[in-house]
């Protein structure tokens, strides 16, 4: 089955790098459900630009460290 989005992300790695932050913890900080974080991590849902920025802000990294798109310049 092809994923509905070509956007990939490093949320899982970033969570573990930030003291093993739970999906529930991240969800609570950006005001979405845990199921939405699971869907984003698994590439089943592309978040809105606002949610994407909120996630980057939680990890204190630029947006392109959280989300990548095929063909992104290094």
């Amino acid at each position: 089955m092809s994923k509905p989005t070509r956007i990939t992300n490093s949320i899982r790695a970033l969570r573990f790098a930030r003291g093993e932050m739970t999906q529930a913890g991240l969800a609570q900080r950006i005001g979405v459900t845990r199921q939405t974080i699971i869907a984003i991590e698994q590439g089943r849902y592309s978040p809105s630009l606002e949610v994407a920025f909120q996630i980057a802000q939680v990890f204190k990294v630029p947006l392109d460290e959280v989300f990548q798109y095929p063909g992104d310049a290094p």
Binding site: G31, V32, T33, R34, T36, Y45, P47
Partner: peptide
């Protein structure tokens, strides 16, 4: 976990 609908 939550009964509130989110953006998704």
């Amino acid at each position: 976990d939550s009964r509130r609908a989110d953006v998704r």
